[in-house]
Amino acid sequence: MVNSASDSVLKVSNLTKDFSGIRAVNNVSFELNSGAITAVIGPNGAGKTTLYNLISGHLAPTSGSVKLENKEIVGLTPNLIVQAGIGRSFQITSIFPNLTVAQNIRVAVISLQRKQFDFWTKVQQDRSLNQAVKDILELVGIEALAQNPVNLLSHGDRSLVEIAIILALKPRLILLDEPTAGMSREEAQKIVQLIKQLQQATGCTFLITEHDLEVVFNLAESIIVMHQGQILLQGDCQAVSDSPEVRRVYLGT
C-alpha cells in the first residue's frame, strides 16, 4: 500500500475506547487514502460501530487521535465534525420520517449552506437550496420519489435517501455502517453499484462496514479486519482472503 502524507484524508492513531473495563477499541491506527473505498470487517463485537462512533464524535475516545486532513477532530461535537467534512450513516436507517424525500435532502443542504439562522426566506422559493436538492436527487437517481414522505418508502429506497442526505453535505469522507443490511440481493447490488458510481462522480473517500463478504470484495480496494477491538490485518482483498488468521477468527474455518 502506498501511503504518501499528502494523500491521506483520515489518520487514526492509537485510538482506544474503554467501556467500564471492556476495551471495545484497542490501540487502533490506520490511514485512509483520498478517493479510496475501504471496508472494515470483523465478527460481531469486534468494535466496528464503536470505531465509527469515535470518528464521528458520537463517543469520546479514552485516548488516541483522529485527524481529518491533518486537523485534529477528537473533542469536537458531532455537528462540528460534520461541518469539518465527515458524513455518516447509521446501522438502522436514520432519516426524517414524516418529511418528504426532497425535504430530507433540503435539511442537509440548509446545513451545508449555513442557512440555519434564516428565519425569513420561504424555503420552497429559495433557488440555491432547491437547485442543490435537485442535483442530489439526480445524482442518486431518486427524482421520481422527491415528493413522497419517506416513511412510505421501501427499506431499499430509504437507504438511498440516507445516502442522499450524506452526499448533500458534500463531505470529504463518508462513513457507511452496514449499507446493505437487511436488503435483498438485488437491492444490495444496486447499493454497491451506486457507491462505486458516487466514488467516481464525487471523488469522496468511503469507509464502509459490511457483513456480506461478497459485497466487500466487490467494492473495497482495501480492507481492515478487526477482532476484539484490534486491527488484525490491513490489506487488499487478496491478502485478506489468503490470510489463515482471518479465516480462523472471521470465517470460523
Binding site: 464521528s56 458520537h58 458531532p78 455537528n79 460534520v82 458524513g87 455518516r88 447509521f90 436514520s94 432519516i95 426524517f96 420520517p97 414524516n98 418529511l99 425535504q103 433540503r106 435539511v107 442537509a108 440548509i110 446545513s111 442557512k115 440555519q116 439562522f117 434564516d118 428565519f119 425569513w120 426566506t121 420561504k122 424555503v123 429559495d126 437550496l129 442526505i165 453535505l169
Partner: peptide, 20 residues
C-alpha cells in the same frame, strides 16, 4: 423558513439532525 424546516427535522429525528 429554512430555520422552520430544521425545527421539523429536529422533531422527526434529532440525532440525525445533529449528524447533519
Amino acid at each position: 423558513s429554512p430555520f422552520g424546516e430544521l425545527l421539523q427535522a429536529s422533531r422527526e429525528n434529532a440525532q440525525r439532525l445533529l449528524f447533519v
